[in-house]
Amino acid sequence: MKPNKYVLILLATITAYVLVEYYRPKPLDWTPTYENDDKIPFGTKVLYELLPDVMQQANVSTVRLPVYNFLTETKPAVRSNYVFICRDFNADGNDLKQLRAYANRGNNVFISAYSFPDSLGSVLGFKADVKEPNKADTTLRQNLVNPKVAKSGGYNFFHDDGRNFLTITNSQRTTVLGRNARKEPVFIRVQYGKGYFFIHNLPLAFTNYYVLSPRTSDYTFKALSYLPALPTYWDEYQKQGRFDEEQQSIFRYIWSQPALNWAYYLVVFGLLFYAIFAGKRTQRIIPVVEPPRNTSLDFVKTVGRLYFQQGDHDNLARKRIQYFLSDLREQYSLNTTVLDKEFTETLAQKSGTSLTETEELVRLLRDAQKSISLSEYDLLTLNAAIERFKHQTV
């Protein structure tokens, strides 16, 4: 039987793609995952492997369960530490209730994240705040308060925009352990019953890049030195969910690997195309005449609504910037590689807008490009500025 040429083409395409993806140089991934098995700059593999020595324990236990399940279904050590390093600390009411009871019994909870549940902050007497985008400062220094562990000149975590800080709303049980150069707290200890909550607002400090950097490596271990040498539990549920590598299904593994993920989609779409072309060869073609319709605007609205509903504000904001700069290049023949003073003045002249408003728009674009992550507020502010500029140039 003669092989079908469409099947051969599909197999050849998939094989070529997998080989190219496998052998091509991999670009450095700067995604902040905070996962303990990631070797990328913003994973936490290095800290996780060093933590047993820091805690003076034979090993550190990884937790792949929600806080509620772990503390109710298992039996943690009589006295222990529970460590969370993540971008956003997400916990519901049941989780927080068990976590407070855990600390109340004389245990320690260490959380380093940019955002925290409001309910946790109201109980412990703090609030995680963030400054406006125009207050971003990647040169902002951080330091520990205790002069015995403080570093002369402080520490600079320049991949962080310096906008996050903690506001203390109840200082009775709170001790400030770390501040930034603006004297704002970024690391506090809150006594809760017989135990303590350690709240830290700069998780990037615990990633591979800064743990291995000679200029910042000691900050990580000084911060963790406030925890007593006890059995320690490291949470990965907040970042990777319930399933570890041994529990991964075939499809979970495929979706976790970019090359295999795309190969999977190529197979699916290839089979669909094959069915379409094979059907044309065996069935009578029935023409369908539909009135012309411009679906570009509907598509853009649908994609934008999808990103916004899913809360992917960072991705949507960056695409908004990308398409806006593309419009500027096409309409005004401008080079948008460097958004400097010359670019601003040229844009103001060609578009007919005032120099002041143009400078404000360009500043927002620069700040957004430098930011590690853009919030909903950043997206709305940026979009309003772009729409205002477009309205003035109509």
Rank of each mutant, 00 (worst) to 15 (best):
Y226I: 01
V46C: 06
A259S: 08
Y332W: 04
L11T: 04
L124R: 00
N208F: 02
I250D: 01
A58L: 12
T381C: 02
T282S: 13
H159G: 13
W234F: 15
F324M: 05
L71Y: 01
N107W: 00
V20L: 13
R305I: 06
T232C: 14
Y219H: 12
T13C: 13
V149I: 09
L71T: 10
T139F: 04
E132T: 12
A181R: 09
L10Y: 03
Q369F: 14
S296P: 00
E246W: 11
N59Y: 10
L227D: 02
F269A: 11
F206M: 07
I188D: 03
G154R: 07
T346K: 14
Q283I: 12
D38R: 11
L379H: 05
R366V: 06
I321S: 09
T139Y: 12
L99Q: 02
Y323I: 12
R320N: 15
A348P: 07
N107L: 01
P25F: 01
N170A: 11
K127C: 00
I9S: 11
L271E: 05
N108M: 03
R242H: 15
K280Y: 14
T33C: 03
S61K: 12
L8Y: 15
V123K: 13
D161R: 14
D218L: 11
P25W: 00
P76Y: 03
M1C: 10
P41K: 05
R79C: 03
L224P: 10
S296I: 15
E21F: 04
K239S: 14
L47F: 13
P147K: 10
Y264W: 13
L347Q: 08
R284P: 15
N146F: 08
Q248C: 09
D314V: 08
N335D: 15
P292E: 09
S326N: 07
A259D: 01
V63I: 13
K350T: 04
F42V: 10
I111S: 00
A229C: 15
L144K: 01
Q248K: 15
S225L: 06
M1A: 15
L71K: 10
Y48R: 02
H313I: 05
H391L: 10
Y23W: 10
R100D: 02
L374C: 04
T174K: 00
D327T: 06
Q309H: 09
Q257T: 14
T138C: 04
L51H: 00
R293S: 13
E245C: 00
D37L: 11
T302P: 08
V288Y: 07
T381F: 12
N383L: 13
V338W: 10
